[in-house]
């Protein structure tokens, strides 16, 4: 092999480098992801149950199951977007890891954060074009696989 380091082979170095790698604190990270992820779900459940409660039905509006779920999604997306806009969600992400990335609030964060970042490149090619740099893959593969199972369902029905 070329290079100045005759006593160091590629394989040897790969082993050396990975042995030095400091590992993530798996237990702590998982605990945080569990706690924050669970908490976000609890918040959503509380909102949904409140929307379905008899108090809400009598005083405001009587939602059915589907309507309540849609409004809950809207509120959760708003919360994620709001916490992103006030520069808080990334701090949450640093602590909670997957616990804040996997819930729908994280989906909102992944759309709102590039929108804010790329404003400096204009509203058309910056905000408009870059909004889905993170969430795009989720939509592409989510909708495509839904079409695939839909096709199978249609054929097998």
């Amino acid at each position: 092999m070329s290079g100045n380091l005759e006593h160091l082979t590629e394989k040897q170095y790969q082993v050396m480098a990975s042995s030095k790698e400091q590992k993530s604190k798996l237990w702590k990270d998982c605990m945080m992801a569990f706690l924050f992820g669970g908490l976000i779900c609890i918040i959503a459940q509380t909102i949904k149950d409140f929307l379905l409660s008899s108090y809400f039905a009598e005083n405001v509006y009587g939602f059915d199951e589907e309507g309540a779920a849609a409004i809950t999604t809207m509120i959760m997306v708003f919360l994620g977007a709001f916490l992103t806009a006030i520069n808080v969600y990334d701090n949450l992400g640093r602590i909670a890891g997957a616990g804040s990335a996997v819930p729908i609030t994280g989906f909102a964060n992944s759309i709102v954060s590039p929108a804010m970042e790329f404003r400096s490149e204009g509203h058309i090619l910056g905000v408009g074009a870059q909004m889905f740099i993170v969430a795009g893959p989720v939509l592409v593969y989510g909708t495509s696989s839904a079409v695939l199972v839909g096709l199978l369902y249609f054929l097998l029905k």
Partner: peptide, 16 residues
């Protein structure tokens, strides 16, 4: 912004 993610995207980076 150029090499990784938007500033406000929540996430962790590995210790390396």
């Amino acid at each position: 912004k150029q090499f990784r993610f938007p500033m406000e995207l929540g996430g962790q980076r590995p210790p390396t």
